[in-house]
């Protein structure tokens, strides 16, 4: 069997498992989208807590961020999923698996995003606040009209990093048996005793991240009209 034949065979195998993998991919995309949509605003709120004048609020958010960043996401998923039963005796339904993944990812990523927001907000020169104050903007206007748009530009590169990590992290959902792409790849691999599903999954994750990078690059370019 020559090399070309071998490649063609792999291609055929991938085509055969494509429908299943794509179904898994849909779940991965869903986890990704929910996490991005909810953790970005939540992260902003947490960053406000982290920078609050009130030492209690600041202490609590600091501890929260510390725990979220200091323990494995997989462990956090277990706690969100099994916690309701072991801690409160609540029987959870099968549907709760996906919800547990959503909750776990959102609260974990919000902590990372909070620190990224904080770095961006604290890097803003005081002169911008002072100019806004002299022009009569109130605090909310100052933040949303003057500060935040500039913060977005500054934090785009680290956010891109985080979002790319998120794409790959969605595979952790398999640890609480949510049927996303990696779960399916693993099932196919053991059923057919072949590496091919993993290769296919790898290609999919790569394409996904490639698209993410393209979008983020476009956003960066869009904001490059000023320095």
């Amino acid at each position: 069997m020559d090399f070309i034949q071998w490649i063609v065979n792999i291609g055929v195998q991938i085509m055969e498992m494509l429908p299943q993998l794509l179904a898994g991919m849909a779940v991965s995309v869903q986890i990704f989208a929910v996490t991005v949509v909810f953790s970005l605003p939540l992260g902003l709120i947490i960053s406000f807590g982290r920078m609050a004048k009130n030492p209690v609020v600041r202490g609590i958010t600091k501890a929260y961020i510390s725990i979220m960043r200091g323990t494995p996401l997989m462990l956090q998923l277990f706690i969100v999923y099994f916690g309701p039963y072991y801690l409160f005796g609540i029987r959870v339904t099968n549907d709760y698996r996906l919800w547990a993944v959503f909750i776990g990812f959102v609260i974990n990523y919000a902590a990372y995003f909070a620190e990224i927001y904080r770095s961006g907000i604290q890097s803003m020169p005081a002169g911008q606040y002072e100019a806004a104050r002299l022009l009569g903007y109130n605090r909310v206007q100052t933040f949303f009209r003057i500060i935040f748009p500039q913060v977005v530009k500054r934090i785009l590169p680290p956010v891109t990093n985080e979002v790319i990590t998120l794409v790959k992290d969605t595979s952790l959902a398999f640890t609480i048996s949510v049927v996303e792409m990696f779960t399916i790849a693993k099932q196919l691999a053991s059923a057919q005793a072949t590496m091919v599903p993993f290769v296919a999954a790898g290609i999919f994750y790569y394409i996904f991240n490639f698209l993410v990078a393209v979008v983020m690059e476009w956003a960066e370019k869009k904001l490059s009209y000023y320095q």
Binding site: P125, G127, Q128, L134, Y226
Partner: peptide, 13 residues
């Protein structure tokens, strides 16, 4: 009152 700063502090965006 208004103030003109040494470093302008224009809004770059």
């Amino acid at each position: 009152f208004g103030l003109v700063f040494q470093s302008f502090n224009l809004f770059p965006h």
